[in-house]
Amino acid sequence: MATDYVLAHGLIGLSLRPLAAELGTSDRMLLYHFGTKDELVADVLRCSNDRAAASIAALAPSRDLRSAVENLWAAVQSDPVDRCTRIYVEASALGLFGQEPYAAVVRAANAVWTAALVAHLVRSGVADDLAPRAAELVDAAFMGFQLDLPLDVDPAARARSVADLADTVAALA
C-alpha cells in the first residue's frame, strides 16, 4: 500500500502524515514498523523495483535483438514500469550524493533491473555473453530518454532515437 501511494504521489517531498492517513494508520505506527522514514522509503523502492522487474520478466520473448529493444522500450513506457522508473530516478538523485539508504538501495535495484533486462534478451535469443553488454547500453539510453520525457521532446524524434538505439544494439550481434 505504501508503494502504491508513493508511485502515485512521488518520492520527493514525501510526508509521513498523508501517507499514514491514506493507509489508515498514524505516522508513529509507520515509524514503529519501519524504524525511520528512510527505511520505509527503502522498502518502497525495493518493492517498486521488484514490480518493474516482474513486468519485464512477464514479457514474451522478442523475435530478435532489435525487436527486444523496441519491446523493452514499450514496456518501460507502460504502467507500472513507467511509475516505478520515476521513483527510481528520484531515489537515484538522492543516492548520487551518497545519501543512505538511497545509494545502497539504488545499487541493489540496478542489479535486479539489469538481471531482468539480461534475462529478457537471453529469452529472445541473444547470446549469453552479449546480453549483459546490450542490457547495459539499453538501460543507459532508456534512462536518458526517460529523463527527457518531461521536456516535451517530439514523439517522432523519440521514436527515431529508439529505432536508432535498436539498430545500434542489434549491430553488436
Rank of each mutant, 00 (worst) to 15 (best):
M1V: 14
M1H: 09
M1G: 12
M1Y: 03
Y5V: 14
V6G: 08
V6D: 08
H9E: 12
G10F: 03
I12L: 14
G13A: 07
L14F: 04
S15Y: 01
R17W: 03
R17L: 12
P18G: 10
L19S: 11
L19N: 10
A20H: 02
A21V: 08
E22Q: 13
L23D: 03
L23P: 10
S26W: 01
R28D: 11
R28M: 05
R28K: 09
L30C: 09
Y32E: 10
F34K: 07
G35T: 09
G35N: 07
T36G: 07
K37F: 04
E39Y: 03
L40I: 11
A42E: 02
A42D: 03
A42N: 06
D43S: 12
L45W: 03
R46E: 01
N49G: 14
N49C: 13
D50H: 12
R51T: 14
A54P: 05
A54E: 02
S55T: 11
S55C: 15
I56L: 15
A57S: 10
A58H: 01
A60D: 15
A60R: 13
A60P: 15
P61R: 02
S62I: 11
R63T: 15
D64S: 11
R66L: 02
S67K: 06
V69T: 07
E70Q: 13
N71M: 08
A74G: 05
A75I: 04
V76T: 05
Q77A: 10
Q77D: 01
S78Q: 09
V81R: 03
R83I: 00
R83Y: 00
T85H: 08
T85F: 07
I87F: 06
I87Q: 05
Y88W: 07
V89E: 00
V89H: 00
E90K: 00
S92W: 00
A93Y: 01
G95K: 02
L96S: 02
Q99Y: 05
Q99A: 09
E100M: 08
A103R: 15
A103C: 13
A104F: 04
A104D: 12
V105W: 02
V106L: 07
R107T: 12
R107M: 09
A108C: 05
A108V: 10
A109W: 00
A109H: 08
N110E: 13
A111E: 15
V112I: 14
V112A: 12
V112C: 11
W113P: 10
W113L: 10
T114L: 12
V118S: 05
A119G: 14
H120L: 15
L121E: 00
V122W: 06
G125Y: 13
G125D: 14
G125W: 12
A127Q: 03
A127I: 06
A127D: 00
L130A: 14
L130W: 06
A131M: 10
A131Q: 06
A131N: 06
A131S: 10
A131P: 08
A134E: 07
A135N: 13
A135V: 15
L137A: 15
A141K: 02
A141S: 11
A141F: 04
F142D: 02
G144F: 02
F145G: 08
P150H: 00
L151F: 04
L151D: 00
D152W: 04
V153Q: 08
V153H: 04
P155T: 03
S161H: 07
A163C: 03
L165W: 00
T168E: 06
L172I: 14
L172V: 06
